[in-house]
Design a protein around this nucleic acid. Sequence first.
DNA 1: AATCGCGTCAACCGCATTACA
DNA 2: GTGTAATGCGGTTGACGCGAT
Length: 252
Amino acid sequence: MIMGSERGWKKGPWTHEEDKLLTEYVTLHGEGRWSSVAKFTGLNRSGKSCRLRWVNYLRPGLKKGQLTPMEEGIIFELHAILGNKWSTIARYLPGRTDNEIKNYWRTHFKKKEDSKHNKKLKKRRSKVTKEQVVMEDTNKSNNNNENTKSYDDETKENYYNDQHNNMGFIYPNNNNPTMLLEQQQSFPLMHQDYLSSPSWPDTTTADYDAFLWFSLWDFDVPQGFEEHVNNLTKYVLPNQATFGDGGTPMQK
DNA sequence: AATCGCGTCAACCGCATTACA
DNA sequence: GTGTAATGCGGTTGACGCGAT
Protein backbone atom coordinates (compact mmCIF):
# COMPACT_ATOMS: atom_id res chain seq x y z
CA MET A 1 0.00 0.00 0.00
CA ILE A 2 1.26 3.43 -0.86
CA MET A 3 1.15 5.74 2.11
CA GLY A 4 1.19 9.52 2.22
CA SER A 5 4.17 11.03 3.88
CA GLU A 6 2.50 13.63 6.09
CA ARG A 7 0.41 11.49 8.39
CA GLY A 8 0.26 8.16 6.73
CA TRP A 9 -2.64 8.81 4.38
CA LYS A 10 -3.40 5.97 2.08
CA LYS A 11 -2.82 6.69 -1.59
CA GLY A 12 -3.51 4.95 -4.84
CA PRO A 13 -6.72 3.55 -6.32
CA TRP A 14 -9.87 3.60 -4.23
CA THR A 15 -11.56 0.39 -3.21
CA HIS A 16 -15.27 -0.26 -3.38
CA GLU A 17 -15.42 -0.18 0.39
CA GLU A 18 -13.77 3.23 0.55
CA ASP A 19 -16.17 4.56 -2.06
CA LYS A 20 -19.05 3.30 0.02
CA LEU A 21 -17.77 5.00 3.15
CA LEU A 22 -17.21 8.27 1.38
CA THR A 23 -20.62 8.17 -0.28
CA GLU A 24 -22.29 7.50 3.05
CA TYR A 25 -20.44 10.40 4.61
CA VAL A 26 -21.43 12.86 1.88
CA THR A 27 -25.01 11.63 1.92
CA LEU A 28 -25.12 12.29 5.62
CA HIS A 29 -23.11 15.49 5.93
CA GLY A 30 -23.17 16.96 2.44
CA GLU A 31 -20.24 18.09 0.36
CA GLY A 32 -17.46 20.00 2.05
CA ARG A 33 -15.60 19.51 5.31
CA TRP A 34 -13.44 17.03 3.49
CA SER A 35 -10.80 16.98 6.16
CA SER A 36 -13.38 15.57 8.55
CA VAL A 37 -14.07 12.54 6.42
CA ALA A 38 -11.24 10.54 7.91
CA LYS A 39 -12.40 11.35 11.44
CA PHE A 40 -16.03 10.39 10.83
CA THR A 41 -15.62 7.42 8.53
CA GLY A 42 -12.32 5.90 9.51
CA LEU A 43 -11.14 6.33 5.97
CA ASN A 44 -7.40 6.78 5.90
CA ARG A 45 -7.58 9.27 3.06
CA SER A 46 -6.68 12.94 3.00
CA GLY A 47 -9.41 15.52 2.57
CA LYS A 48 -8.06 16.42 -0.81
CA SER A 49 -8.16 12.84 -1.93
CA CYS A 50 -11.74 12.45 -0.70
CA ARG A 51 -12.90 15.58 -2.44
CA LEU A 52 -11.27 14.53 -5.67
CA ARG A 53 -12.77 11.07 -5.53
CA TRP A 54 -16.21 12.48 -4.89
CA VAL A 55 -16.07 15.22 -7.49
CA ASN A 56 -14.57 13.13 -10.26
CA TYR A 57 -16.12 9.75 -9.69
CA LEU A 58 -18.80 9.38 -7.04
CA ARG A 59 -20.87 12.51 -7.34
CA PRO A 60 -24.38 11.81 -8.63
CA GLY A 61 -25.21 13.03 -12.11
CA LEU A 62 -21.81 12.42 -13.57
CA LYS A 63 -21.89 11.34 -17.17
CA LYS A 64 -19.91 8.29 -18.05
CA GLY A 65 -18.63 7.37 -21.43
CA GLN A 66 -17.35 9.24 -24.41
CA LEU A 67 -17.98 12.87 -24.99
CA THR A 68 -20.48 13.65 -27.69
CA PRO A 69 -19.47 15.63 -30.77
CA MET A 70 -21.47 18.46 -29.29
CA GLU A 71 -19.49 18.40 -26.11
CA GLU A 72 -16.25 18.17 -28.05
CA GLY A 73 -17.21 21.26 -29.97
CA ILE A 74 -18.05 23.13 -26.82
CA ILE A 75 -14.74 22.22 -25.26
CA PHE A 76 -12.91 23.31 -28.35
CA GLU A 77 -14.73 26.61 -28.51
CA LEU A 78 -14.43 27.40 -24.84
CA HIS A 79 -10.79 26.44 -24.68
CA ALA A 80 -10.09 28.85 -27.48
CA ILE A 81 -11.55 31.62 -25.36
CA LEU A 82 -10.66 30.61 -21.85
CA GLY A 83 -7.49 28.62 -22.23
CA ASN A 84 -6.82 25.94 -19.67
CA LYS A 85 -9.62 27.00 -17.36
CA TRP A 86 -10.83 23.45 -17.04
CA SER A 87 -13.13 23.98 -14.13
CA THR A 88 -14.77 26.91 -15.88
CA ILE A 89 -15.24 24.91 -19.03
CA ALA A 90 -16.63 22.04 -17.00
CA ARG A 91 -19.36 24.30 -15.62
CA TYR A 92 -20.80 24.49 -19.10
CA LEU A 93 -20.83 20.71 -19.52
CA PRO A 94 -23.17 19.26 -16.94
CA GLY A 95 -22.07 15.86 -15.74
CA ARG A 96 -18.51 16.31 -16.92
CA THR A 97 -15.59 17.06 -14.66
CA ASP A 98 -12.66 19.37 -15.11
CA ASN A 99 -10.37 16.38 -14.87
CA GLU A 100 -12.21 14.60 -17.64
CA ILE A 101 -12.14 17.61 -19.90
CA LYS A 102 -8.51 18.22 -19.16
CA ASN A 103 -7.67 14.64 -20.01
CA TYR A 104 -9.76 14.81 -23.13
CA TRP A 105 -8.05 17.94 -24.31
CA ARG A 106 -4.62 16.54 -23.73
CA THR A 107 -5.30 13.29 -25.55
CA HIS A 108 -7.21 14.76 -28.46
CA PHE A 109 -5.74 18.16 -29.11
CA LYS A 110 -2.29 18.11 -27.63
CA LYS A 111 -0.95 14.99 -29.27
CA LYS A 112 1.79 16.79 -31.07
CA GLU A 113 2.42 19.31 -28.36
CA ASP A 114 6.03 18.27 -27.98
CA SER A 115 7.15 21.00 -30.30
CA LYS A 116 10.09 22.77 -28.73
CA HIS A 117 8.56 26.11 -29.57
CA ASN A 118 5.45 25.62 -27.58
CA LYS A 119 6.43 27.42 -24.44
CA LYS A 120 6.83 30.64 -26.37
CA LEU A 121 3.18 30.52 -27.26
CA LYS A 122 1.45 30.56 -23.92
CA LYS A 123 -1.44 32.88 -24.46
CA ARG A 124 -3.31 35.25 -22.33
CA ARG A 125 -6.66 33.72 -23.09
CA SER A 126 -8.77 35.08 -20.33
CA LYS A 127 -10.04 38.33 -21.77
CA VAL A 128 -9.17 38.21 -25.41
CA THR A 129 -11.42 37.06 -28.16
CA LYS A 130 -10.86 34.12 -30.38
CA GLU A 131 -10.18 36.30 -33.35
CA GLN A 132 -7.59 38.25 -31.41
CA VAL A 133 -5.93 35.06 -30.44
CA VAL A 134 -5.75 33.91 -34.03
CA MET A 135 -4.39 37.28 -35.10
CA GLU A 136 -1.80 37.22 -32.33
CA ASP A 137 -0.60 33.85 -33.39
CA THR A 138 -0.47 34.83 -37.01
CA ASN A 139 1.34 38.08 -36.32
CA LYS A 140 3.84 36.48 -34.03
CA SER A 141 4.53 33.85 -36.60
CA ASN A 142 5.04 36.44 -39.32
CA ASN A 143 7.17 38.70 -37.17
CA ASN A 144 9.46 35.98 -36.03
CA ASN A 145 9.79 34.81 -39.59
CA GLU A 146 9.73 31.24 -38.37
CA ASN A 147 7.11 28.71 -37.65
CA THR A 148 6.49 29.01 -33.94
CA LYS A 149 2.96 27.65 -33.88
CA SER A 150 2.24 24.65 -31.79
CA TYR A 151 -0.04 21.92 -32.98
CA ASP A 152 -2.56 23.25 -30.54
CA ASP A 153 -2.52 26.79 -31.85
CA GLU A 154 -2.35 25.71 -35.43
CA THR A 155 -5.33 23.45 -35.07
CA LYS A 156 -7.35 26.25 -33.57
CA GLU A 157 -6.37 28.64 -36.30
CA ASN A 158 -7.28 26.17 -39.00
CA TYR A 159 -10.56 25.58 -37.31
CA TYR A 160 -11.45 29.24 -37.22
CA ASN A 161 -10.28 29.79 -40.75
CA ASP A 162 -12.43 26.91 -41.89
CA GLN A 163 -15.36 28.37 -40.07
CA HIS A 164 -14.83 31.73 -41.75
CA ASN A 165 -14.22 30.35 -45.19
CA ASN A 166 -16.84 27.68 -45.26
CA MET A 167 -19.55 29.01 -43.05
CA GLY A 168 -18.98 32.72 -43.06
CA PHE A 169 -19.12 32.77 -39.31
CA ILE A 170 -18.39 35.85 -37.30
CA TYR A 171 -16.44 35.64 -34.14
CA PRO A 172 -16.54 38.40 -31.61
CA ASN A 173 -13.83 41.00 -31.96
CA ASN A 174 -13.17 44.61 -31.12
CA ASN A 175 -15.75 45.78 -33.62
CA ASN A 176 -18.24 43.35 -32.35
CA PRO A 177 -17.53 43.09 -28.67
CA THR A 178 -20.95 42.29 -27.44
CA MET A 179 -20.30 38.63 -27.00
CA LEU A 180 -17.29 38.55 -24.73
CA LEU A 181 -17.77 35.56 -22.58
CA GLU A 182 -16.90 37.15 -19.30
CA GLN A 183 -19.56 39.77 -19.78
CA GLN A 184 -22.17 37.10 -19.86
CA GLN A 185 -23.91 35.65 -16.88
CA SER A 186 -24.51 32.27 -18.37
CA PHE A 187 -24.33 30.12 -21.44
CA PRO A 188 -27.77 29.28 -22.73
CA LEU A 189 -26.43 26.24 -24.50
CA MET A 190 -26.02 24.46 -21.25
CA HIS A 191 -29.69 24.05 -20.79
CA GLN A 192 -30.08 20.40 -19.96
CA ASP A 193 -32.83 20.07 -22.56
CA TYR A 194 -30.26 20.48 -25.28
CA LEU A 195 -27.84 18.00 -23.93
CA SER A 196 -30.41 15.33 -23.44
CA SER A 197 -32.20 15.97 -26.69
CA PRO A 198 -32.65 12.84 -28.79
CA SER A 199 -32.65 14.83 -32.01
CA TRP A 200 -29.31 16.40 -32.54
CA PRO A 201 -28.48 17.85 -35.89
CA ASP A 202 -26.45 15.60 -38.14
CA THR A 203 -22.91 16.20 -36.91
CA THR A 204 -21.44 15.70 -40.35
CA THR A 205 -23.22 18.63 -41.89
CA ALA A 206 -22.64 22.32 -41.93
CA ASP A 207 -25.93 22.65 -40.12
CA TYR A 208 -24.32 21.13 -37.11
CA ASP A 209 -21.47 23.58 -37.16
CA ALA A 210 -23.94 26.37 -37.49
CA PHE A 211 -25.92 24.94 -34.65
CA LEU A 212 -22.87 24.64 -32.49
CA TRP A 213 -21.64 28.10 -33.19
CA PHE A 214 -25.03 29.61 -32.83
CA SER A 215 -25.47 27.88 -29.54
CA LEU A 216 -22.24 29.12 -28.14
CA TRP A 217 -22.43 32.69 -29.19
CA ASP A 218 -26.02 33.62 -29.22
CA PHE A 219 -26.52 34.44 -25.60
CA ASP A 220 -30.18 35.09 -26.08
CA VAL A 221 -30.88 31.69 -27.41
CA PRO A 222 -34.33 30.34 -26.54
CA GLN A 223 -34.78 27.72 -23.88
CA GLY A 224 -36.11 24.84 -25.94
CA PHE A 225 -34.14 22.85 -28.41
CA GLU A 226 -36.93 22.83 -30.98
CA GLU A 227 -37.25 26.53 -30.90
CA HIS A 228 -33.52 26.77 -31.10
CA VAL A 229 -33.44 24.68 -34.25
CA ASN A 230 -36.33 26.62 -35.69
CA ASN A 231 -34.42 29.81 -35.22
CA LEU A 232 -31.40 28.19 -36.69
CA THR A 233 -33.33 27.25 -39.77
CA LYS A 234 -35.05 30.56 -39.95
CA TYR A 235 -32.10 32.84 -39.45
CA VAL A 236 -28.95 30.93 -40.17
CA LEU A 237 -29.27 28.37 -42.86
CA PRO A 238 -31.13 30.21 -45.61
CA ASN A 239 -28.82 33.12 -45.34
CA GLN A 240 -25.36 31.95 -44.51
CA ALA A 241 -23.70 34.46 -46.76
CA THR A 242 -24.89 37.26 -44.55
CA PHE A 243 -22.73 36.07 -41.73
CA GLY A 244 -19.70 37.25 -43.53
CA ASP A 245 -17.09 39.69 -42.38
CA GLY A 246 -17.97 42.33 -39.94
CA GLY A 247 -21.63 41.61 -39.58
CA THR A 248 -23.49 41.02 -36.42
CA PRO A 249 -24.71 37.65 -35.35
CA MET A 250 -28.25 36.66 -36.09
CA GLN A 251 -30.93 38.95 -35.01
CA LYS A 252 -33.86 37.49 -33.24
C1' DA B 1 4.16 -15.27 -27.25
C1' DA B 2 6.68 -11.27 -26.08
C1' DT B 3 7.24 -6.53 -26.01
C1' DC B 4 6.75 -2.10 -27.49
C1' DG B 5 4.23 2.16 -28.13
C1' DC B 6 0.34 4.69 -27.45
C1' DG B 7 -4.13 6.28 -25.55
C1' DT B 8 -6.85 6.74 -21.58
C1' DC B 9 -7.95 8.07 -17.12
C1' DA B 10 -7.69 8.03 -12.03
C1' DA B 11 -5.11 10.06 -8.73
C1' DC B 12 -1.39 12.81 -6.81
C1' DC B 13 1.27 17.15 -6.26
C1' DG B 14 2.19 21.96 -5.71
C1' DC B 15 0.44 26.32 -5.64
C1' DA B 16 -3.20 29.87 -5.18
C1' DT B 17 -7.16 31.37 -3.09
C1' DT B 18 -10.57 31.52 0.44
C1' DA B 19 -12.36 30.93 5.05
C1' DC B 20 -11.86 31.31 9.64
C1' DA B 21 -9.99 31.84 14.31
C1' DG C 1 -4.37 42.40 10.27
C1' DT C 2 -2.23 37.90 10.53
C1' DG C 3 -1.50 33.05 10.57
C1' DT C 4 -3.30 28.65 9.59
C1' DA C 5 -6.37 25.30 7.70
C1' DA C 6 -9.38 24.06 4.11
C1' DT C 7 -10.54 24.08 -0.47
C1' DG C 8 -10.02 24.55 -5.42
C1' DC C 9 -7.42 24.39 -9.56
C1' DG C 10 -4.20 23.10 -13.19
C1' DG C 11 -0.21 20.27 -14.27
C1' DT C 12 1.73 15.89 -14.06
C1' DT C 13 2.37 11.01 -13.19
C1' DG C 14 1.73 6.22 -13.44
C1' DA C 15 -1.07 2.09 -14.05
C1' DC C 16 -3.61 -0.25 -17.23
C1' DG C 17 -5.48 -1.95 -21.59
C1' DC C 18 -5.01 -2.72 -26.31
C1' DG C 19 -3.34 -2.97 -30.90
C1' DA C 20 0.79 -3.34 -33.78
C1' DT C 21 5.00 -5.47 -34.74
